[in-house]
Lab assay of single mutants.
Amino acid sequence: MGFKLLSKLLVYLTASIMAIASPLAFSVDSSGEYPTVSEIPVGEVRLYQIADGVWSHIATQSFDGAVYPSNGLIVRDGDELLLIDTAWGAKNTAALLAEIEKQIGLPVTRAVSTHFHDDRVGGVDVLRAAGVATYASPSTRRLAEVEGNEIPTHSLEGLSSSGDAVRFGPVELFYPGAAHSTDNLIVYVPSASVLYGGCAIYELSRTSAGNVADADLAEWPTSIERIQQHYPEAQFVIPGHGLPGGLDLLKHTTNVVKAHTNRSVVE
Rank of each mutant, 00 (worst) to 15 (best):
M1V: 06
F3K: 15
K4R: 06
L5K: 15
L6I: 09
S7V: 10
S7G: 08
L9I: 15
L10A: 12
V11H: 15
V11G: 07
Y12D: 13
L13F: 14
A15V: 08
A15M: 10
S16G: 15
S16C: 15
A21N: 14
S22R: 12
P23Y: 11
L24Y: 15
A25D: 14
A25M: 15
A25S: 14
S27I: 09
V28G: 10
D29M: 10
S31M: 09
G32Y: 14
Y34S: 08
Y34I: 09
Y34C: 06
T36H: 12
V37K: 13
S38L: 11
V42C: 08
V42K: 10
V42Q: 12
Y48T: 09
Y48V: 15
D52M: 09
D52I: 09
G53E: 10
V54P: 02
V54K: 01
V54L: 06
W55S: 01
S56G: 15
S56V: 15
H57W: 00
T60A: 12
T60D: 03
Q61Y: 08
Q61E: 06
Q61I: 08
S62H: 07
D64N: 13
Y68E: 11
Y68P: 03
S70Q: 03
S70N: 05
N71I: 04
G72N: 02
G72E: 01
V75D: 05
R76E: 10
R76N: 05
D79L: 09
E80I: 07
L83R: 02
L83E: 00
D85K: 00
D85A: 01
W88Q: 00
A90Y: 08
A95W: 04
A95R: 12
A98E: 12
E101V: 09
E101L: 08
K102H: 15
Q103W: 11
G105W: 05
T109Y: 08
T109H: 10
S113N: 06
F116I: 04
F116K: 01
D118Q: 08
D118G: 08
R120A: 05
V121I: 09
V121S: 01
G123L: 04
D125N: 12
R128V: 10
A130W: 09
G131C: 05
T134G: 00
T140R: 03
R141Q: 13
V146M: 14
V146K: 14
E147Y: 15
N149D: 08
N149I: 07
N149Q: 10
S155I: 13
L156W: 01
L156A: 03
E157A: 12
S160W: 10
S161F: 13
G163C: 00
A165D: 07
V166A: 08
F168E: 01
P170I: 05
V171Y: 03
Y175K: 00
P176I: 01
A178R: 11
L185F: 05
I186T: 10
V189C: 02
S191I: 08
L195M: 05
Y196W: 01
G197F: 02
G197E: 01
G197A: 08
G198L: 04
G198P: 03
S205K: 10
R206N: 15
G210W: 04
V212G: 08
D214K: 05
D216C: 03
L217K: 03
W220N: 03
P221I: 11
T222R: 12
S223W: 00
I224W: 02
I224N: 05
I224Y: 01
R226A: 07
R226E: 03
Q229A: 14
Q229P: 05
Y231L: 00
P232V: 07
P232H: 08
E233Q: 13
F236T: 10
V237C: 03
V237H: 00
P239G: 02
P239F: 02
G240K: 04
P244I: 09
G246F: 02
L247Q: 12
L249V: 03
H252I: 01
N255D: 12
V257F: 04
A259N: 11
H260C: 09
N262I: 11
V266G: 14
V266R: 14
